[in-house]
Design a protein around this nucleic acid. Sequence first.
DNA 1: ATGGTAGCAATGCTA
Length: 264
Amino acid sequence: MRIATWNCNSIRSRVDRAVAFLERHDVDVLALQETKCRDDQFPHLPFQAAGYEVAHVGHNQWNGVAVVSRVGIEDVQVGFPGQPGWGNPVAAEARALGATCGGVRVWSLYVPNGRSLEDPHMVYKLDWLAALREAGAGWLGQDPDAAIALMGDWNVAPTDEDVWSVDYYEGKTHTSAQERAAFEGVVGAGFADVTREHTPGPGTYTYWDYTQLAFPKRRGMRIDFCLGSPGLARRVEGAFIDREERKGKGASDHAPVVVDLTAG
DNA sequence: ATGGTAGCAATGCTA
């Protein structure tokens, strides 16, 4: 089974790219972030026509996550236990959706952007990751062999080699010690980064800013990951980042990350 | 020199 994650930066403006990506790489399950639409606005038809069904949650024009699958969608859950709200709580809920697809529990996660190290959103981001760590530990406590994929835009670059310039990000979000500790907290709960060994760095990124010609200058960040439970990680036989998807007119600022699993 | 681009929605906010 082939699973993938992609921050599409608006699914309505990129649905053709999304379907083409699924077909180009024969993807079974895709976790989407930043769909930037409400549930009633989600473009289901192009996915249905390609043989996929969709579970989506979105309450405003900024957040919104989805799981797209051609191997079934069961037990859809919006949000995880303890997930903190921010302002309008339904807006915060639109950052996480879990669904069981072909026996694998796939979470599409959009970790909050901290905005700046001093911003209250930074506290929210750290609290959000701490709650995810606790929820994940709980799931593994219930079933240590569960195949769980925590896929999405983590808005954290876990190591220095995950940014094009350590100096550039000094004093900014994504690389701070607190954010890296929060990310490692989820890893410590039993969820390993299953992509890195198949996509070694440095210089291997999943996001490039739209401005300043960041992509052609190869000024990016690795912030999109699949963190797998032990039961998921032992099934991983490969992974790649689809840099081609970042190219051309109408690209998202993120590239998809694809993970191949052996049969369960 | 706090720029630049993109999307949604509305003349600003978010990333």
